[in-house]
Amino acid sequence: MATETRGEEGGLAFHPMDQFIVKPLFGDGPVGIVTITNVTFWMALAVLCVVALLVLGTRGRALVPTRTQSVAELAYGFVYRMVEDVVGKDGLRYFPYIMTLFMFIVFSNFLGLLPLSFTTTSHIAVTAVMAIVVFVTVTVIGFVKNGAGFFGLFWIEAAPLVLRPILAVIEVISYFVRPVSHSIRLAGNMMAGHAVIKVFATFAAIVAISPLSVLAIAAIYALETLVSFIQAYVFAILTCVYLRDALHPHH
């Protein structure tokens, strides 16, 4: 259907979603499970960036940090404080895990902002895996740490007894909606921003409105830079919040 639409467009062809196509990097065979695709390429680039920042940047172990090292320390301190503030002292065991998620998302988002790049985090498959991993981990931690006491998360003692079953149903539903909203929030934000930039870029083909469209692209791009960081932050902080619920279900 989309193909037909495009055929009818004529001069102005909207292909806002084409940037998200997963295709093999070498040749064009089918996409198998271990095929080297653009997903592989951009994820590898994200890994390289993380390594460059956090490993190569701190290679000097300088007492007075270089610029890269101070950025690395800033990132470390940012996530560390977030975990400490939201989860508490006993959450610091899971700090590397949250740091991994945060660094991966932040670098994927920023790399996705490069022109002609591919945004791995705009794919529901990717974010859903991360969200499900968080969900399963948190649930397992909750039951391991608290046993049956973890059900206290759904049975709100502060509410009147009559309301408690209803609230329990709502809480259970919201608990299971978590991974859905958690994954779709990130993927949707990334997809929306990039698609909007692409749509404006298509308008730039019309001479009369191209200056306006270029301005709009610049504005949206600035917004997307902000959103890229905020979504990584939100993903990490929501993971922290879920972790806190698992560790202290009665709060």
Partner: peptide
């Protein structure tokens, strides 16, 4: 942090509607 969580929750609903629009299109 609380503000950002609040923003994330309310923004998620807008993203859902955007997703519905994309799915329909």
């Amino acid at each position: 942090a609380t503000m950002f969580i609040g923003i994330a929750f309310s923004e998620a609903l807008g993203i859902f509607s955007f997703l519905v629009a994309l799915l329909l299109m």
